[in-house]
Design a protein around this nucleic acid. Structure first.
Lengths: 357, 357
DNA sequence: ATGAAAGCGCTAACAA
DNA sequence: TTGTTAGCGCTTTCAT
């Protein structure tokens, strides 16, 4: 293990000079600078980030906390954060907390102990989130996709109420009366707000809100499956269902299929988040697409802005989702007489900024 | 920021005693132990991992390097590594190198500088991989999914030659004669070996290997799209195509659709890696499934074994992929007279160990 | 069983 | 412009 001391000795300078050269400080003789740099290269010296962090009390690593690494929405978001960080020469510490508050605490403690320069988090809970500890320690935090109600931090979200409202309204406009919802936990922003939008849409159209049609639980596919099964067992099963994220849609879809039902004929489905593989199949799902890449990009830019100017005013940014019509809501079949041209019209381009919680 | 010194003062003991209590050393009076622990808790003290790393020259973070965060194969793999690490109280530093050797070097340098305890890597290149620097520094490295030819490290892979051989043979058994392949770079294990299996299958069946039908480039969807477009423009376009990973399949699929062709009628497709969303659509792709979760699990277990016993013999483990029949190769339609029961028979369970590079 | 003290590799005053 | 030196917070001998 080669240390700065070794380099200093070899280059016939002091420790401090080596450090100065490495930081690019101006007050170093050119000749010395060149000699030190050559020695560094020749010896293959890599400064210890650990020692530097200890000394400066910060690192050039930023933490990113997501609740599901297998959900394309979050991986796209992570991808965006990583792109921005790489441009800024920061490494990303990606933590997958699996919608599990204990894991979230573990990773947040780890990041604190590792003295990360900042954190982008999509919090599992809106309140009592473990990340208050980061805020208290003065580490910049940006909340993305979901909010933290009891913490004052920069936040980037998508308008969930409007998204769910529009999705539900779309089903109502189809003539659907018995619309169910399967959504995530009430103490997560996305779970709560998508439910809100759904209810508001029903009420605005003078429809009854039926408790049996409302499933509030988790954002995992297992929950989507279980809930859909329960919905289908009702004496009056719903004729349409709104699934509040992508894994829930997967689970619900499987339940529908196992019951031998056809979409959209027997039951209509409208999902939240881009179903990324929609371009790989001829049957496609109708969904509210979220600008996940932009979400990550904006979040990480806010983070760097905060790192560079800790006292600037807190920003809360909200983006809009957009409805993508597929076959699962039953309206595309009517719109298209030529199935040949239909699907290709919604083929997405090869943009790395894929969309898609 | 509360330090160990603060705790020591408050608890009326020395720095060393606090440290001993925290490490669980036996030679501490029970009364003192309790008092220190109480003080730690009361003050909300979190030991600095940075300082500890500097002192002990290692950390309880392991690095994971993957080439594509948006590929379900890799996220499943990452998920497995993370599960094992969490059980062992290690945090995972997930690095996404985007099939880009410069990013790979950047992250490997970062991990070295951060003194990670070990690294699980799916290397971009088989030779001259930047991770030699980790090996040289004595940091345990496990190679997963892809090999490193010039480095002696524990390795877990899936048999790509056999997988590609079987996939190609399946198409040949369908009567396909004009089979194209789109695969990743030749200097990646998976790109090279899947090509090998394809060629071997053709030769074993006395078929010509046609250079125009072989596309070797990258594992990205853009490449799959571009290559498929080129293949379709040939005067004698192929009647079947084998795509060597999931993004390539996505790209190729789009190209096929944009040309107004039907799968499997106009062209047959067989993919590598589980198309995870197959359960969400009625049309499905035939693919070679890889045990990606197990791959990650075994890799991380090897890593911990190596961390605990650096001198134990190097292990190379190879798993087997398995063929999943869908509609895209054209044989399912014949097998099934009742489409209703067909698809549901291949519905995968809600196992977090999803399969699927 | 406990404390004193050295030092991990680096940065940043302060001196020169 | 360069060197000397004092820590950052922790672990770990070595004493006691």
């Amino acid at each position: 293990m080669i240390t700065m001391k070794d380099v200093a000795r070899e280059a016939n300078v002091s420790n401090a000079t080596v450090s100065r050269v490495l930081q690019g400080e101006p007050h170093v003789r050119e000749e010395v600078r060149v000699r030190v740099l050559a020695t560094v290269k020749r010896m293959g010296y890599k400064p210890s980030r650990v020692a530097r962090s200890l000394r400066t009390n910060k690192s050039s690593v930023i933490g990113m906390v997501i609740t599901d690494v297998q959900n394309p929405f979050f991986t796209t978001l992570a991808r965006a954060v990583e792109d921005v960080c790489y441009e800024n020469n920061y490494a990303v510490f990606l933590c997958h907390v699996d919608e599990n508050i204990e894991k979230e605490r573990f990773y947040i403690d780890t990041m604190l102990a590792e003295k990360v320069a900042g954190v982008v988090i999509s919090p599992t809970q809106e309140t009592n989130n473990p990340s208050w500890i980061l805020v208290k320690a003065g580490i910049p935090v940006v909340s993305v996709d979901r909010r933290m109600l009891d913490l004052t931090v920069d936040t980037v979200t998508v308008d969930n109420i409007s998204g769910a409202y529009k999705a539900t309204t779309h089903l109502i406009d189809h003539g659907c009366r018995d619309i169910a919802i399967i959504t995530g936990p009430k103490n997560s922003t996305t779970g709560r707000e998508r439910l809100e939008g759904y209810i508001k849409a029903l009420q605005d159209h003078q429809m009854n809100v039926i408790p049996e049609y409302i499933k509030i639980g988790s954002f995992k596919s297992e929950y989507g499956y279980k809930s859909m099964m329960e919905l289908l067992k009702l004496s009056h099963p719903p004729t349409a269902v709104f699934t509040a994220n992508y894994p829930i849609a997967q689970g619900a879809f499987n339940a529908i299929r196992q019951n031998g039902l056809k979409i959209p004929d027997d039951i209509k489905l409208i999902a939240y988040d881009q179903i990324e593989l929609d371009t790989i199949y001829d049957t496609s799902i109708t969904y509210m697409a979220q600008p996940s890449y932009d979400l990550g990009k904006i979040a990480s830019k806010l983070l760097f802005a905060r790192i560079n100017a800790p006292e600037s005013p807190i920003q809360k940014i909200m983006l809009e989702p957009s409805l993508h019509i597929g076959h699962s809501c039953g309206c595309l079949a009517q719109l298209l007489s030529t199935p040949e041209t239909g699907p290709s019209s919604r083929v997405t381009s090869f943009n790395p900024k894929r969309k898609g919680d």
